[in-house]
C-alpha cells in the first residue's frame, strides 16, 4: 500500500525523506567500498525486472481476487541489503513518477516502508538468521513467508503511523490498524510463496547465478545490530529536531496531530463561539471601508495570535471562500484556454 501525498504533513514527509536519503547514502557508500563492476547494470536491469513483474496480476488462491508482487524480499535475498535497497528505491521512484503511485513527497515514506523495512530490518534479522546457509526448499519457503509477512506488516504499520502523525485523517488508531494489518497478511503469505518459489526455481535451474551474486556482495557481515540501533537513534534525534523545528516555525501542519495526541480539549467552546465570532466579524467588517487584502490579513494575524476557531471555515469566511474559489479557478481555466488558443495560432 503506497502512502499518499494528500494525507501527509510536511513534517512527516520531510523527516521520512531525510531518513530514506540517509539510508540511500549509507547503501551507496557501503556498495562503493567493494563492488563488482558488473553489479551496476545487473541492479538496473533487475530493477526493471521487478517493475515489469509488479505489473503482472496473479490470482490469489481461494479468493478469486488478484494481487501483485512487491519484490523487496526477492531483491534482498538475491543482491543483499545494500544493493537491494537501492534497487527498491529506484523502482519506487520510477513508480512515483510514471504512475504517480503515492506522489513525490510521499516517496520518502514509501522508500522507508517498502525499501528500508524489508532490506535493512527483515532480511538481515529474520531471513538471514533463520535460513543461514540452508538450501532446503521447504525451509526457504517457510522463512520466506514469515519474512515477507513481517516486512509487509511493518510496512503497513508504518503507513498507519505516518498517516496518524500527519493528522489529516480522522481514523482512530485502532480502527486503522485493524483495517490495514489483515489485508496485508493475506498479501504477505502469497508474496512469500512467490518469493520462495522464484528463489528455489533459480537454485534448481541455474545454481551458479545465486552463488556468483552472493560472491559479488561486499564482504563481512552486512549489517550489525549495533549499527542499526545507532542509526535508528540518530534518526530519532533528527526526527525530533525536524518536528520541533516545524512546530516552532510552522504551526499549521502539526497543530492537529498534537491536538489529537493531547485530546480535543477545546472543542465544545468553539461550537458555542461560532455565532459570536461571526457576529463580531460582521461588526468589524462594517467599520472597515476597504475589503482588499487588508482585512483578510488582519484576520489572518488575529487567527495566529489567539487559538483560532476553525480556521477558514466559519460561515462568513466560507461564503467568501466559495465565491473566491470559483472566481480563482475560473480565471485559471481562462488563462489556460488563452494559452492553448495562442499556442495553436502559432503553429
Amino acid at each position: 500500500m503506497h502512502m499518499a501525498d494528500a494525507l501527509l504533513s510536511p513534517a512527516v514527509g520531510t523527516t521520512l525523506w531525510a531518513g530514506s536519503v540517509a539510508a540511500g547514502g549509507y547503501a551507496s557508500m557501503k556498495l562503493k567500498e567493494r563492488i563488482d563492476d558488473r553489479t551496476i547494470p545487473l541492479m538496473g536491469v533487475l530493477g526493471a525486472f521487478i517493475f515489469a513483474v509488479q505489473m503482472v496480476n496473479f490470482t490469489i488462491p481461494g479468493t478469486g481476487s488478484s494481487g501483485h508482487l512487491g519484490g523487496g524480499m526477492i531483491l534482498a535475498i538475491l543482491l543483499g541489503s545494500h544493493a537491494a535497497f537501492l534497487v527498491m528505491a529506484s523502482v519506487l521512484t520510477v513508480q512515483a513518477l510514471f504512475f504517480a503511485d503515492g506522489g513525490l513527497l510521499a516517496l520518502g515514506c514509501n522508500i522507508w516502508n517498502l525499501g528500508v523495512t524489508p532490506c535493512y530490518l527483515v532480511y538481515p534479522f529474520i531471513y538471514k538468521s533463520m535460513v543461514g546457509g540452508s538450501k532446503n526448499p521447504g525451509r526457504i519457503l517457510v522463512v520466506s513467508i514469515v519474512s515477507v509477512v513481517a516486512a509487509l506488516q511493518l510496512g503497513a504499520f508504518s503507513v498507519v503511523m505516518e498517516t496518524l502523525l500527519s493528522g489529516k485523517s480522522e481514523l482512530p488508531f485502532s480502527a486503522f490498524v485493524l483495517m490495514m494489518q489483515p489485508i496485508h497478511l493475506a498479501i504477505g503469505i502469497v508474496e512469500g510463496f512467490v518469493t520462495a518459489g522464484v528463489i528455489n526455481y533459480v537454485r534448481s535451474a541455474r545454481p551458479e547465478i545465486l552463488e556468483s551474486m552472493a560472491a559479488s556482495r561486499p564482504i563481512g557481515r552486512e549489517v550489525s545490530l549495533k549499527k542499526v540501533l545507532a542509526t535508528f537513534a540518530l534518526l530519532a534525534v533528527i526526527t525530533g529536531g525536524v518536528l520541533s523545528w516545524f512546530a516552532s516555525t510552522h504551526p499549521d501542519g502539526l497543530e492537529w496531530s498534537i491536538e489529537k495526541v493531547t485530546g480535543k480539549g477545546e472543542l465544545p467552546q468553539h461550537e458555542n463561539g461560532v455565532a459570536a465570532v461571526f457576529k463580531g466579524f460582521q461588526e468589524k467588517t462594517a467599520f472597515l471601508p476597504d475589503y482588499g487584502f487588508k482585512p483578510a490579513e488582519n484576520e489572518l494575524k488575529k487567527e495566529k495570535e489567539a487559538p483560532p476557531p476553525w480556521p477558514g471555515i466559519e460561515a462568513g469566511t466560507s461564503v467568501a471562500g466559495i465565491i473566491g474559489a470559483a472566481i480563482v479557478l475560473g480565471m485559471i481555466v481562462l488563462i489556460g484556454m488563452g494559452i492553448r488558443v495562442v499556442g495553436r495560432r502559432q503553429i
Partner: peptide, 24 residues
C-alpha cells in the same frame, strides 16, 4: 548530490524498463 551509483543504476532501470516490459 545523489550518489553516482544510485543514479547510474536508476538510468539502467529506465533504459531497460521498456525492453523488459515488452519481454514480460
Amino acid at each position: 548530490g545523489f550518489p553516482a551509483l544510485f543514479v547510474s543504476q536508476l538510468l539502467f532501470l529506465y533504459r531497460y524498463l521498456f525492453v523488459l516490459m515488452e519481454e514480460t
